[in-house]
């Protein structure tokens, strides 16, 4: 318990320091490090995100569609899929995938650096490891998570439309009409707010676990595993709280 508090404390300190150093890393000379992280966060994950988002949308459409068909209301899959994607599944699925792929990679990379004295080398060069390593990752997450989430939403809604069209006989226009009737801008933007929070969570947990790595390769493995577990848990709780806050 004490350990939990302490870890949370150090993670928060690290987060604050990373926020403070944002202007530095955004200066012309260091922008490129941020860009590199953006590339890793977003572009490299697009493949797996596409597949997952497509099937999430398809599954949502199929399951709700089969239920709704009993009442002859298949056309409501448009709103069901869109609202669920925008509010919950989009940000949530994106966060899980990014945590599992990008987050764990971050933890592994920083963990390896810790055990191979690279972090120590940065410290001796008086280069703040948080500024140099955490800030660009945090910035990239904050900027790219919402964008990737929008992408997930689009792909998910398209997936739903495809299933609606082929399996449930709901025309694309009926699907879109229904979707736009019930989905609100609030759904979209609350979802995006969530995704930004999730991005901050992933970057913080991954970097914190990376820095806390001890004991060589075994430690790196542990840091990676913990990153995924801890970020999932925090994402779930924070996701619930945000939903609670905006949809009482």
């Amino acid at each position: 318990m004490l350990l939990l508090f302490r870890n949370t404390g150090t993670a928060m300190c690290m987060l604050l320091e990373a926020f403070r150093d944002m202007p530095f890393m955004l200066s012309r000379r260091h922008r490129h490090d941020v860009l590199h992280q953006q590339f890793l966060t977003a572009i490299k994950s697009l493949g797996v995100i596409t597949v997952v988002a497509l099937f999430t949308g398809m599954i949502l459409a199929l399951q709700t569609g089969l239920e709704l068909r009993r009442f002859g209301q298949e056309v409501y899959i448009g709103s069901a899929v869109t609202v669920v994607m925008l509010r919950e599944m989009g940000p949530f699925m994106t966060a899980l995938i990014i945590a599992a792929s990008v987050g764990s990679a971050m933890a592994a990379q920083i963990g390896t650096m810790t055990v191979s004295e690279e972090i120590a080398a940065l410290e001796v060069m008086a280069i703040k490891p948080v500024r140099y390593l955490v800030t660009p990752r945090l910035l990239a997450m904050i900027m790219m998570m919402p964008l990737v989430t929008i992408y997930t939403n689009i792909i998910g809604v398209v997936g739903g439309a495809v299933v609606g069209h082929t399996q449930l006989g709901v025309s694309i226009t009926a699907y879109m009409d229904n979707a736009t009737q019930f989905a609100e801008n609030k759904d979209l933007y609350v979802g995006l707010l969530k995704s930004i929070l999730f991005g901050i969570i992933i970057a913080t947990v991954a970097c914190h676990q990376g820095f806390a790595t001890t004991q060589g390769a075994v430690g790196v493995g542990q840091a990676t595993r913990r990153t995924v577990v801890v970020s999932f848990l925090v994402i779930l709780t924070v996701g619930y709280m945000v939903t609670r806050l905006f949809y009482q």
Partner: peptide
Amino acid sequence: RERFGFLFQSAALLQ
């Protein structure tokens, strides 16, 4: 620290 240069046993280059 800025007065020091440190060559690590493992070189500690950023990969």
